[in-house]
Structure formats: structure tokens, C-alpha cells
Design a protein around this nucleic acid. Structure first.
Ligand SMILES: [Zn+2]
Ligand SMILES: [Zn+2]
Ligand SMILES: [Zn+2]
Ligand SMILES: [Zn+2]
Lengths: 167, 167
DNA sequence: GCTTGTGATGTTACACTATACCATTTATGA
DNA sequence: TCATAAATGGTATAGTGTAACATCACAAGC
């Protein structure tokens, strides 16, 4: 590693060794795809890597832009296809509020993701929503609605931005 | 009422007297705007009425189309402005998952709305999310994130569509 | 009445997000 | 090898949302 020092950047809102976390996640994805008989093609791999590099939500066109720089697909469908694959197989999530995508922080584990979105700095943290205990589930049960997927996204200010604003 | 019989249609997923519910909600909105010093203009009133008429989520362009038929604004901004007003003042909600809007079922009351979205028939029911008791709030508190707004949207099959599919 | 400021509306033009569709290539498996 | 399915390339277009500026309506104060 000649120039760039191994960096500790902010993931979600916590610090960690970023280089390590990216490569590890990619390896894990590779392995999981092999096991599941999924094709982890160059475009899909690179798309995931792009999402992992930034720990924030990226729009499909942001991803496309980076893919284009490397000759991996030049049109919107290329990005959407890769992202759809990642979302469908649990490697990434879509943030509806932002029309954007983010790498999953616990791929492979069955979970109901929830997101904390800072409206100032745009960073996003993934956490987990309470499974099966909410009032929503109760209301659904009462009316016979069968829930297949729950989307939870919270907007507000992250700790750093609260401090900024508080001064 | 000459031709159309006073109808009992489906609100969310429950039956009710629809004519009555629309007019009542409009009157209530009128009153609340008067009290709060808000201008409940023709476009805004009609936009709310449109949302109330259908008890489902409508896209901004669906609303625009209906407004156009009556000469109330011909361009997208007209619809978006009216809808923004309704959302900002609690008369309607935006469903992020659908890029659509729906009239609030309990305007005036401070609540965290949650939605049940049927992926087959497209109907949407509003219920309430548990305020302050979820794991999300706990995770937010732990990291110093200050939540300002929470978005909860559940996708699945409504009772009718479950029955359909079950056969 | 007139002025003035604010908020609402009209209008154009454009930016951003997403998909339908068809042709071509690549991998998989009989 | 050949048939099949999956993935990609590419065009075009649909759908969603806003910036920016001009104009209009209204209410408060002179
Ligand atoms: Zn996840
Ligand atoms: Zn922040
Ligand atoms: Zn509501
Ligand atoms: Zn249904």
C-alpha cells in the first residue's frame, strides 16, 4: 500500500477500519454466491464494491457514473440490473426515502432493516427493526393483512450534526 | 340522489359510508385551516377531495390530471404545491414506496402514521406506528441520533387478496 | 382609496429516476 | 455439440419532481 494509509472512516455513524471492511464483505459475498449458485459477475461485484466504499446511500446514477469510468456498462439498465441483483439477494438495500441504495451491514442474516438518515450530512446507518412486535403487525393481524416486508426509515440528525446545530 | 345510491365502499380495507366521510373530512379541514390561519384555496381543497374520493394512494400526476379537467392548474407544480400543502399540514401523507399520496385518516391528531400496502390490488390502509418504543429509537438513542420523523410502510396482501391467492 | 408586502398561482424548461423492449453474448447442462 | 437460460448491450421513452421567474390575489397599514 504505497500512498493511501489504511484509513479509519465513518461507517454509518461509527468508526472502523474501512479497507478491511470492504474487502471482507466482498469476499463473503463471493462465497455466498458460490454456495447459492448465484453469478457474482464483474458488474455486480464492482457495484457492491462501490456501495461498500462509501458508507452512504448512492443513487443508481451515481453508481452508473462510477461503472462507466471503468467500461462496465454505459446505460442506466446496467446499473439498475446490478443493484436489483444486490437487493434481491440481500447484499444491499434500497432506501425509498432517498431513491438510493446502500450496502447491507449484515448480509446473509435474515433481518428487517431499519435506517437512520441524517438530513444534514446525508449519512445513513443501518440498524434492525423489531421483528413482529409492533403495533403495525397487530393492526395487520386484526384486518387479515399478511405482511411480507416492512420498511422502516427514520429521518433526523446524527450525533455530529446535532452538535453542529446545537452551537 | 337520483342515480348513484349512497355507497358503502372500501376505506383502507374496511367498509363505510363514503359520501359522508368525504364531505365530513372536507368540512373539518376547512375549519382547521380557518383556525390555523391557513388558506384552504380551491386547488388545495379540490386536491384533498380527490384524495378522499379514492381511498387509495394517488400519484401526483393522477391528481394533476383530475385538476386539469377542471381548469385548476395545468402543470406539475400546481399539483405538487397543493399536495405539499396537504402533507405539510397533516391532511395527507406521502407513501414513499409508491411515490404517491393519500388522505390522512386522522387529521389534526398528532400521530406517526404507518401504512399497509397491498401489492396485488394496490389499496392502502393507514394505521399507527408505536411511538417511541421500537428498537429503532433505542439504536438511535445509543448513537446520539435525534429522530425527527419515522416512516413505516408494510407491503403484503390484504385479506381479500390473501383469499384470492389461497384458492 | 392606495401602497406595500406576502403568499399563492401560472408557466417554462429542465433534472432526476426508472423501465420496456429487442438484439447479442455468455454460461450451463443435456 | 446443441439447446436453454441467464446476463449484458443499447435505444428509446416513461414517470417523477423542481428551479426559476413572472404574475396575481389578498390583507394590513398608510
Ligand atoms: Zn441489511
Ligand atoms: Zn449528519
Ligand atoms: Zn394520518
Ligand atoms: Zn389487495
Amino acid at each position: 500500500m504505497p500512498l493511501a494509509a489504511p484509513s479509519a472512516e465513518t461507517l454509518g455513524f461509527a468508526r472502523h477500519d474501512h479497507n478491511h471492511c470492504v474487502s471482507e464483505a466482498l469476499e463473503a459475498a463471493e462465497e455466498r454466491c458460490a454456495d447459492a449458485g448465484l453469478r457474482f459477475t464483474p458488474v455486480r461485484r464492482r457495484a457492491l464494491e462501490i456501495l461498500l466504499e462509501e458508507h452512504r446511500a448512492l443513487g443508481a446514477y451515481d453508481v452508473l457514473e462510477r461503472l462507466q469510468e471503468e467500461g462496465l456498462g454505459a446505460q442506466p439498465p446496467a446499473a439498475y440490473r446490478a443493484l436489483d441483483f444486490l437487493v434481491a439477494n440481500g447484499f444491499a438495500h434500497r432506501i425509498e426515502r432517498l431513491n438510493a441504495f446502500i450496502a447491507c451491514t449484515q448480509p446473509g442474516e435474515d433481518h428487517v432493516p431499519a435506517f437512520l438518515i441524517c438530513r444534514t450530512c446525508g449519512r445513513v446507518a443501518e440498524t434492525v427493526a423489531m421483528p413482529g412486535k409492533g403495533v403495525i403487525e397487530a393492526a395487520a393481524g386484526a384486518t387479515g393483512f399478511r405482511i411480507e416486508r416492512v420498511l422502516v426509515e427514520a429521518e433526523g440528525l446524527c450525533a455530529d450534526c446535532v452538535t453542529e446545530a446545537g452551537r
